[in-house]
Design a binder for these strands. Structure first.
Lengths: 199, 199, 199, 199
DNA sequence: GATGAATGAGTGTTCATTCAT
DNA sequence: CATGAATGAACACTCATTCAT
């Protein structure tokens, strides 16, 4: 009941509870802006898109990397969590493939995530750290299972694969739709090729 | 009258020849700066490194993309030319592999080339255009030969492969040395995997 | 009804007494912050140091000058009071000298007091007003006594002397320890010089 | 002849030669702004007052301290140079007194000079450095001569005296005109007092 | 009364680009 | 042709102050 907000009041301002609401708009806006203009987009743009003052952005996220991380954290979590489900429901290679495609969607639909992963600026390092910490174990288990089953080669580094696929997700001009998918599939085939050569 | 150059002035500068000299220093400087600070480096830095005025940069290259293109043109040409030599000296798959590694070096050692290829800014499109125009045919012939020999699959788009490998050349943090090489090799194995599966 | 405080709430906070407690922490915190970062220090720093909300600072001291004044009021009072004691216990010139040194300590140890005295901002004028109102009479009596005793010249304006010494208390870089003391002593000697010349 | 600027041309823009003109307006404007609002005045204000773009300020003076130094350099030089003239034309104590008053004018009329001397910000250190480097020797010679003549005491540190007088030049509210002069004279008398006491 | 979230004006600083010499 | 001075838009970030809870 406490969450039922009277109509009129809701249209006004709603401060205290709006801290959360603001935070949400902020994350929403940032996600959109990052997708459009990359993670280097002006703070002002994010703020105005969210309908809040600039300082509000700084209040919630003193460092830009914290905002970036916050924006992608949930999606990274969801993607990592998907690994267990896929492992339960499919045989190893199928699970691996599906997850890699899932991962591909994560990166490909978030312009800016890929960019922030490659940023040399130390300010941004919170993002790749979180990224690695959560996604590497997810891939690790799937890759290990598929390798154990002799379906893919054993000598591929998990994190490198993650980053390699991440790079392939960077949008490229003048290529047809499905380019990323095809490249990722090619890489996956590369994983299988090795499995045959060294059983 | 306009062409009459006062004696004294003529002894100071040698206009015609200096134009070329300036252009050369400019390309040299730009290459170095691009390698160090990326293609977004301040124009001023390039100009001062070349020992010329800023306006001179703009005279020769009104658009930044033209400078970038000019900087990489020669290297792109050389890489493209290598294809023919390799085709003559090695059997198809070997030639293809060697050339892809050659191409990898081209991209990997030119910080900024890869970036400018992916730039969304329409200003930069001269670079990918030149890039595609010269390198696609080179890879096309090698890829076609290897495919004809049944060594690699036939269904891979040349330009996409070019861009895919290009993306894999983007430097990535927290990976060991040789990361790019390993990823490219994985992709090449992907090419072979298909060949076996569908001979 | 307004005064009826629900039990639970009453156990959490003790409103009436806390008002004073807050005020005290505020003054304490402000004194510390002023000493460290000058009187221009961010309000937020004072608030957080005092463990209260920002708005609480504004409630008690809508104008920054009022806070400054409140911070230094007690010390100004104590210094002023010292004059009478010194006058009782020492002969005129000795009492004067001792008090001026006492006054020097007051200013010198309160970074920001001196600054706020010289502020052009009309917002700050409450401080010099209080300052003058209390300290000028104190010095006046000591100076008058010493002058009457022929130990110092008669033609020096009390308030000017107060401010002159105040200025000498401003910390200065690249001078040895004891600089302020030496300068103030020099000024005091100036007071005596006149006495001899015009007895 | 080269300096004769055609009227019409002069009224237009005059770029190359105007570099100097701009620099002059800049110094002029900065001096005025420093006098009005202190050396912390917004760069924008100086720029607009000088009628130039902001970046022009930064071109000439990348560091604010450089601008401050440039603004006061000439006046410091002139003041330092005056010492020799005074020493030639007056007997030691008279020369010393006159120079100290000259020095007082330098500081007192340049609101902001005094301030920048006391700045803790390391950015500003160029100013006190230049200040000390030039004015300390000037005072040193005058002070030494007067001390040798037994007219002032010997145990006063030159630089401390310089800074002490500098502090006395800080404008103070609610004092009558001539306050600084009176305080400085009092300090000078302090110098003489010691001379009598210890000949 | 107390809170702290929100605000937005203000400031330093960088950089691409133009233009008179 | 080359020069580099000048420009001003753009951006990050801080902080005093207000206001709904």
């Amino acid at each position: 009941m406490r969450n039922v907000v009277p109509f009129v009041k809701a249209m006004k301002k709603t401060p205290r509870a709006d801290a959360q609401r603001n935070l949400d708009s902020l994350l929403e806006a940032a996600k959109a802006v990052f997708a459009e203009s990359g993670v280097d987009a002006p703070v002002r743009e994010i703020a105005s898109r969210a309908g809040v003052g600039i300082a509000t952005v700084y209040r919630h996220f003193p460092q830009r990397a914290e905002l970036i991380a916050a924006v992608y954290r949930r999606e990274i979590d969801a993607c990592a969590a998907a690994a267990q489900v896929l492992a339960r429901e499919h045989e190893p290679f199928e699970a691996l493939t599906r997850w890699l495609h899932r991962f591909t969607s994560l990166i490909a639909t978030k312009r800016g995530l890929a960019a922030s992963l490659n940023a040399q600026d130390p300010t941004y390092q919170a993002v790749p750290a979180y990224f690695r910490e959560h996604l590497e174990p997810a891939l690790q288990s799937l890759l290990g299972a598929a390798a154990a089953a002799g379906q893919v080669r054993k000598d591929v580094d998990t994190y490198e694969l993650l980053r390699g696929i991440g790079s392939l997700c960077i949008p490229v001009s003048e290529v047809g739709p499905g380019y990323t998918r095809r490249m990722v599939d090619l890489l996956i085939d590369g994983l299988r090729y090795g499995a045959r050569a060294a059983p």
